[in-house]
């Protein structure tokens, strides 16, 4: 004898009456699987309340976290990629770019904004990993170069938020030379005695690590971000054995002397503002 009795068989709701769970209402932490409402998750700056896992976020989210009242001016917003090599692998490069622009609503893998952080001037170039893996191509190089010019013009500090798999293969030689280009411009910034903060987030690898990301007056990172030159798979193949626990995490890189400090996202704005003040006052 059961407690409840089904009196109609099967699902009786018709498809037209079916109600979908709205997208983006809930968020499940990929690390500890805790479920949050999206609203709560935004309140914690996309960091899991329970295990402090830092979800990857885009440039707009970082700008909102950092700039006072989320207020900033964007420059070079419409710069887009050319296709100097007519590159085609399994897909045409131009098609890849178009598809990425459509799916992300972004023009390329970096955005530049300037404004105030706790009342102090700051120009930020922030990468979007969602756009072709945050890859470094001509557009990124040029936007960073112009961002540095803007910082010099405003006598402001400069910050790059890295989140990238490295160079954009589809721009081959051009993408490689962007490493030199941005590094050269950083030298000019340095001559003006303006601070450059390099903020490394998950992931920062390849050509980005081997150029401007490692050249900050201070290099800082989010907790547990993957930071390295060669990707972990390549290193594993090279040495022919498993990688040690925690290899190429922010904590590992800090321990080996290549970072100044690691900062939780909830403390980010306060910490950056203090660093800026320590350079300035």
């Amino acid at each position: 004898m059961s407690w409840f009795k089904r009196n109609k068989e099967g699902i009786t709701t018709t498809t037209s009456e079916k109600k979908e769970t709205p997208e983006g209402l809930w968020h499940k932490c990929p690390n500890c699987k805790t479920v949050f409402t999206q609203a709560d998750f935004i309140k914690t700056n996309y960091v899991c309340d329970r295990c402090s896992y830092h979800e990857r976020i885009g440039s707009e989210e970082y700008f909102q976290i950092l700039f006072d009242k989320g207020d900033y001016t964007e420059i070079d917003a419409n710069l887009t990629s050319g296709d100097p090599l007519n590159f085609e692998d399994t897909k045409k490069y131009t098609d890849r770019i178009a598809a990425s622009q459509k799916s992300t609503g972004l023009k390329d893998a970096v955005r530049t904004g300037y404004g105030k952080v706790d009342g102090l001037d700051l120009v930020i170039c922030c990468m979007d990993f969602a756009f072709v893996g945050g890859s470094l191509g001509s557009v990124m190089g040029e936007k960073m170069a112009r961002g540095i010019d803007k910082a010099i013009e405003l006598k402001a500090a400069f910050m790059i938020i890295s989140k990238s798999g490295g160079a954009r293969m589809m721009e081959a030689g051009y993408s490689l030379m962007q490493m030199a280009k941005v590094s050269g411009k950083l030298g000019q910034l340095s001559e003006h005695k303006l601070p450059y903060i390099s903020f490394l987030t998950d992931p920062t690898t390849g050509g980005v690590t081997a150029s401007f990301a490692m050249l900050g007056d201070i290099n800082i990172a989010e907790p547990k971000a993957l930071i390295g030159f060669a990707g972990p798979r390549v290193v594993k193949e090279t040495i022919g054995r498993d990688l040690p626990e925690g290899f190429q995490t922010s904590e590992f890189v800090l321990e080996h002397g290549f970072l100044d400090y690691i900062v939780e996202r909830s403390e980010l704005k306060k910490t950056i503002a203090l660093s800026l003040r320590l350079f300035k006052n």
Binding site: T80, G82, P84, V139, G141, A145, K181, G184
Partner: peptide, 8 residues
């Protein structure tokens, strides 16, 4: 090096 790159 700054001249290197193609963009629109």
């Amino acid at each position: 090096f700054c001249k290197m790159g193609v963009w629109k």
